[in-house]
Design a binder for these strands. Structure first.
Lengths: 201, 201, 201, 201
DNA sequence: GATGAATGAGGCTTCATTCAT
DNA sequence: TATGAATGAAGCCTCATTCAT
C-alpha cells in the first residue's frame, strides 16, 4: 500500500500547526524555535529543512492559511447571488472561521501585524484576493442598483475588513468568560454595511 | 525662581518624540534603545533616568499620545450635539490626526496589537476612553431615536474604530503618489456607519 | 567475471575529484559535505560509505594526490643524474603541475597549513618524501662537490619548497590576465638555488 | 593626573593580545569567542564593541602586527646601505621576530592562511609593503651591479618570502626539543639568495 | 550499496540594562 | 543629572553525521 499522498508534506504541516499554536500562545517574538520544534515533535534543525527561518515560517503560515481561507470563502458564497446576501454570508463565514480556528486567527491577526517584514516589505496578495471578493460584491451591488454608486469599493472594502478584523481581534483576545457572541457580531457588522451602503437610506 | 516647568521635562519629551519616530519607523521590537538615544541626542543610559525600561517607554508614549488625542477629540466635538454630526466629526478628526501626524496612526496600531498579548497586564484605558466617546454617541443616538435600538454599542464601536484604523493603516502604508484622499475616506466611513445604524434604513 | 577494478573505486574517485574541486574553491572549513556530494552527483550519506568523515576525506586526497605527484616526480627525474639538472627539473615539474592542475597547488597549501595544527597527529609522510627528493639532491650535490658542504639540507629543502609554494600560490591567486609566466618563475627559482648553493660562488 | 593616552585603546589591545594567544593555541576555527573574552578578562559582548566579528578580529591582528613589523623592519635596516648586507639583516630581522613573538608568528602564518577572507578577498597591503622592501633591495643591487639584471624582483621577492615563511612555519610548528637554530636558518637563506642572485656566480 | 531526511549540539552574535565616573 | 563602555544571558541557525528505507 502506497503512503497517503500527503505523506510527503506531512512533516511540514506538522511544523506549521505547531507553529500556529506556539505563536498564538506566546506571540511571535516570545516563541522560541525550539518550542515549536518540541511541540511538533521534531528536532530544531528540521524546521530549517522546510522554512528559511523563523520569519519565513510565519509568512508561510499566512500564505497557506489565506489560500485555504480563500478557497473556503468561494465555497461559502457559492450559489449566493444577491449582493446583500453575499455580504451577510461573507461576514458569517469570516467570524465562523475565527471562532473555529482561534489560534490561526490569532496568528493572522495579531502576530502578523507585528512583523515588520509583513507590514513593510511583504505584499499580501492572498489577503487582497480575499478582500476583493468583497470589493466585487460592492461593485456588483452598485451595478444592480442596490448600493449607492458613490461608494468607493476600495474604501468600503478596507472598512469592512477593518471592522471585522478588529472585532475578531477583540474576540480572540478577550478572556473566555467575557466573550461576546461572535455570530451576533457578524450579523450586526453585515447589517451596518448593507444598510450603510444601500440606496434607500 | 523655579525653572520653567517644561524645562524639567524637556529631555523627557525629547526622548518621547524620538521614540515615537523610531517605533513608528521600525516597530517596537526592531527599534533599538540606542537608536532612540541617538535620535534624541542623549546617551543610552539617560533614557533609563526617565523610563524604567523600553516597554515603559512605549507605554508612556501610549499614555501621553492618547491623552492628547482624547483632549483634542473633546475640543473637536465641542458644541456638536447632533449624534450624526458627532460621528462625522469623529471620523474627520481621526483621519486628520493620521494625516497630520503619521506616528499617531502607527502608535495606535502598535498599541492595539501589543497591549493584549505582549503586555499582559496593561490596560489601555485611554484608548477605551477614546472609543467610548463613539460608544456614547451611539447610545445617545439610540436614546434620541436616531439609531436603531438593537445596535450593540460595543460592537459598533469596535467596528467603527477597526474601519477607520484599517483605512488609516492602508493610507500610511501606501506610497505617497497613489495615496487616496483621506478626507473622502472619512466622509464615506462616517456615512456608512450613520446610515448603517440609522432607524430609517 | 569480476568487475573491472576501477569500477569498484569509481564512485570513490568521483567523490575525491569533487572534493578536490570544492576544497580548492572554498577551503576545507567553508566546504560543506553536501557541496561535495552535489558536485559528485551522489547523496550526502554516500560519502560516508567511502570515507570515515570529512577530515578523512581531506587526508585521503592528500595521500592519493601526493602519491601520484611523487610517482610523477620520479618519472620526471628519471635518467637525470646531474644534481644541478635535477634541481631544474624538479622546479619545472612542480610548476608544471601547478599550472596543469591548479587544485594540486591548493591541496598542498592546505595540507601544509592544516596538517600540523588542525590534524594534530597526522604526519604528511608523502609530502616529506616529495621534499626529501630535493634534500637528497642537495646531499648528492654536496658529495659530488657541486654544492657547498655547509648547506643544511633540511633548511635548503624547506626554503626551496617554500619559495616554489609561495610563487605557486601567487600564481594561483592572480587574475588570469596578469599572470606571470610560470615557467620563467621555475627557471629563476632553480637558478637562484643552484647558484646559491654552489661552491664556486 | 590624566590617564595615560593609550588608556583609550587599552581594552582593545587587551583583546587583541588575548586573541593572538588563543588563536595560536587552538587555531582560529577551534578558538571560541568566549575563550578570547575569558582570556582578555572581558565579557563576550565587549569584543563586539571593538571588532565587527571574529574574522575581523583576525584581520585586525594582521593589520596591527604587520604595521608594527614594517616599522621595526625600517629601524632594523636603518643605516645599512649595502644591498647584500640589507638582505642579511632582513632575514635576521624576520626570523628574530618569529622567535621572539611565536604566538604572533603562528597566527600570521598558520591561521591567516586558513581564512578564506584573507586568501581570497582581502588585499594585504601591509604584507606587500613589507615584501617590497626586499624587492627594492634587489633592484638597488641590480642598479649597483651586484645582482644579475635578469633577476625578476617580483619572483625573487616572493621566493625569498616563501622560503623564510616556510622555514618559520616549520620552526613554529616543531616541538621545542627538535627545533633547529633559527638564526642559522636566517644565515643560510640569506646566503642562498645573495649568492643566487649575485653576478659573480 | 545508495539515499537524503532528520538530527541536535553548540557557537556567534545581539542588545536591553547597569554603574562607575 | 548625564554618560557610554561594559555586561552577559539567551536564541537562531548551521552542518557533519546517522540510519531507516
Amino acid at each position: 500500500m502506497p503512503p497517503a499522498p500527503e505523506r510527503k508534506t506531512d512533516k511540514r504541516s506538522v511544523i506549521t500547526e505547531a507553529a500556529v499554536d506556539v505563536f498564538a500562545e506566546k506571540g511571535f517574538h516570545q516563541a522560541r524555535v525550539s518550542d515549536i520544534a518540541r511541540r511538533a515533535g521534531v528536532a530544531d534543525g528540521t524546521i530549517y529543512l522546510y522554512f528559511k527561518n523563523k520569519e519565513d515560517l510565519l509568512l508561510s503560515i499566512f500564505e497557506e492559511k489565506m489560500e485555504l481561507l480563500l478557497e473556503q470563502l468561494g465555497v461559502a458564497l457559492e450559489g449566493v447571488n444577491d449582493p446583500i446576501e453575499r455580504v451577510r454570508k461573507f461576514a458569517e463565514f469570516h467570524f465562523r472561521q475565527v471562532r473555529d480556528n482561534r489560534a490561526v486567527a490569532e496568528v493572522l491577526q495579531v502576530e502578523l501585524r507585528l512583523s515588520n517584514k509583513f507590514l513593510r516589505d511583504y505584499r499580501p496578495e492572498k489577503l487582497w484576493a480575499y478582500l476583493n471578493v468583497f470589493g466585487q460584491i460592492v461593485r456588483d451591488g452598485q451595478a444592480a442598483g442596490i448600493f449607492r454608486p458613490d461608494i468607493d469599493s476600495f474604501i468600503s472594502m478596507w472598512s469592512f475588513f477593518g471592522a471585522m478584523d478588529e472585532l475578531a481581534m477583540q474576540w480572540v483576545l478577550s478572556k473566555k468568560q467575557d466573550r461576546f457572541p461572535i455570530d451576533e457580531a457578524a450579523r450586526q457588522v453585515a447589517e451596518i454595511f448593507i444598510r450603510g451602503m444601500g440606496v434607500t437610506a
